[in-house]
Design a protein around this nucleic acid. Structure first.
Lengths: 105, 105
DNA sequence: GCGATATGCAACCATGGCATTGCACATCGA
DNA sequence: TCGATGTGCAATGCCATGGTTGCATATCGC
């Protein structure tokens, strides 16, 4: 996973409604209609959010008869967390180095 | 750090320009003007991005005479990564449990 | 003091994103 | 078959966001 593919993932995670959807899916796969039934937004709104989440690989569609259930992919989330942690660690190393240089002056 | 404060952080990280700024700041503290000098956007645009980054605690202002340098806070990034990893792990546990139930049928 | 540089604030514009409604199409069940 | 349910697509409205320009203000160096 490169930084380029990482940014859209964060953009996807930067929305409350999508977190609600992810949380709901965490309790079991569900269709857009099923999600809309217990959330204060339209089915179409949910469908768009699901499209976004699918685009960045956070969710996966599973066709079951006439309905399309969505499954949350926790691995993608862990992967993202790992990359983020690497970046944070890298910056902390740099900052520590700078600080040491400053103290040795 | 709660989930409520977490979402804005992701929203902040969901922008290419802001990543450019963070990357630039990773090589040393810099002011909005200094950043604007080596980036294809206006100083004011940079200033707005810095305000957003500061709002979510990813960056910290340091007044130096008449200029305001910004320092990137890697710890906040690591903190975010940790929370994200926890959430991902939680979902993977749930999914594993569901899978096991399904297999035992 | 004065010019140069850095910042701050406000107005403005364009684009994109979130959400809506409306309608057409597919599929399940009685 | 026919009604009910689930999905897909398109048009639209609205507001937030990213970006710009312009101007006022503060501070440094000479």
């Amino acid at each position: 996973m490169t930084t380029a593919t990482l940014v859209p993932v964060f953009a996807a995670l930067g929305d409350e409604t999508r977190w609600s959807i992810l949380a709901a899916l965490g309790e079991g796969d569900a269709s857009a209609s099923a999600l809309a039934a217990r959330m204060p937004v339209t089915r179409q709104a949910i469908a768009k959010h699901l499209a976004v989440l699918q685009e960045v690989g956070l969710v996966e569609p599973v066709r079951v008869g006439r309905e399309v259930r969505f499954r949350v992919l926790g691995s993608q989330l862990s992967e993202t967390a790992r990359r983020l942690d690497e970046i944070g660690a890298e910056w902390e190393r740099r900052l520590a180095a700078i600080k040491q240089i400053a103290e040795s002056l």
